[in-house]
Design a binder for these strands. Structure first.
Length: 182
DNA sequence: TACTGGATTCACT
DNA sequence: GTGAATCCAGTAA
């Protein structure tokens, strides 16, 4: 199993989000297959739309973790990308394949389906916090290569862009996978 | 300095 | 289906 090199994350969020499906994410003994992602670029819905201290990680680099705290109790983890622009891909759901006992303990549940079937659940199960913000996607917390998911097996949700009023691809997921959220 | 609202989750009805 | 929990970043003053 080969960790994805930094150059792999140089593409835009919209190209990268579907390509991340099926890849292996690993932090310590916690291991899982990415089954759902969400693309964020320069749309006003993205934190990167405004230049702030928090969003600098997203604008200045790629191939790093962008971890932020939301709703007073949840962490969400993104991979920064787009060498020439601004982008990040939110990891929305993961299928647990290793370190499941540890995840169960962290999540306080024995139901495997509830371990990582949401962005904040994934962070809790993998022990991701603000300490990981800005860290390179490599080493202890990395994404490993795996065969691409066939295009026909990838589902796409779209939404209306705030500025453009056109439909934008948004959420990508592996069709039929039980660990996809919602 | 104070206020507002959020890339969510879970319990409860 | 609905609402509470909870705190930080961003914005306005």
């Amino acid at each position: 199993m080969r960790p994805l090199p930094r150059s792999w994350f140089a593409e835009s969020a919209l190209e990268l989000a579907p390509k991340l499906l099926g890849k292996i994410v690993k932090k310590g003994s916690a291991t899982g297959v990415i089954v759902e992602t969400e693309a964020y670029g320069t749309d006003p819905a993205s934190h990167a739309y405004r230049i702030t201290p928090r969003s600098r990680a997203m604008r200045d680099t790629y191939g790093r973790w962008y971890v932020y705290f939301t709703y007073g109790m949840h962490w969400c983890a993104n991979v920064t990308c787009d060498k020439d622009g601004i982008g990040a891909v939110l990891i929305r759901a993961v299928e647990p394949i290793g370190g499941i006992a540890l995840m169960k303990r962290r999540r306080g549940t024995s139901i495997v389906k509830n371990l990582c079937s949401g962005p904040a659940k994934f962070c809790e199960a993998f022990g991701v916090t603000g300490n990981d913000n800005g860290a390179a996607v490599a080493g202890a917390f990395a994404i490993y290569d795996a065969p691409d998911i066939p295009r026909e097996d990838i589902g796409v949700s779209s939404r209306i862009g705030i500025t453009s009023a056109t439909e934008l691809p948004w959420r990508f997921y592996i069709r039929g996978n039980p660990f996809v959220s919602r």
